[in-house]
Amino acid sequence: MNWEALATTVKLASTTSLILMIIGLPLSYWVAFSKWRWKFLVEAIVALPLVLPPTVLGFYLLLAMGPQSPLGRWYESLVGHGLSFTFEGLVVASVLYSLPFAVQPTAAAFGSVDRKLIEASWMLGVSNFETFFRVIVPQSWAGVITGLVLSFAHTLGEFGVVLMVGGNIPGVTRTLSIDIYDRVQGLDYSGASRTSVVLLIASFVILSIVYGFNRKVWFFGADRRHRQAV
């Protein structure tokens, strides 16, 4: 078991899901409630990583982060080194790669909040911003947590993008999935199998949590009422 790779992976997944939570909440709100006519284009862009080969995404990110691109140059002038083949670069790539896993369940949950509850909040003098945190998010916990956990799990298992953008630097960008790849290349099948089991069990446990959450059994009255209605 490569503990260093495990630590890198967990650090990457936690950072990514935390950032996705912060940018995912407002983005999901916008996706759920905006009436902009071109909204579908934004939705398509958010969903793109679901169908795009990770190598394609990784390739474009590599170009975007490189010293020839404005973004790469800007970042280098800011912190003194480039984005590609660094942990930060990996975080940027993972955030984009896991974006749909954070946004889609959250936006779906926001969109299914009873409109009357939101309007009732407005009619009690409470602003849109405050209504978001006092009504919409509490009514969407299952979706928010699903988004958080899925983006964590998805980052845990990412391979193609990591390889393209992060390379394979031990302690910095070598994650568990790349470690497995390395070991198989080096014919260390027992090492690869130990790591694989860890990833398999972790993924299964995480998905069980997600599906368990979405049974909504231990949730508040709204869901109880909903189940009666169904």
Binding site: K116, E119, A120, S121, V126, V135, F220
Partner: peptide, 20 residues
């Protein structure tokens, strides 16, 4: 002006109490 700025008490048909 937005609904928040109107001193109105609005009773919704199904009452719209916050379930949480």
């Amino acid at each position: 002006i937005p609904p928040q700025k109107r001193p109105i008490g609005y009773l919704f048909q199904e009452y719209a109490l916050f379930p949480h």
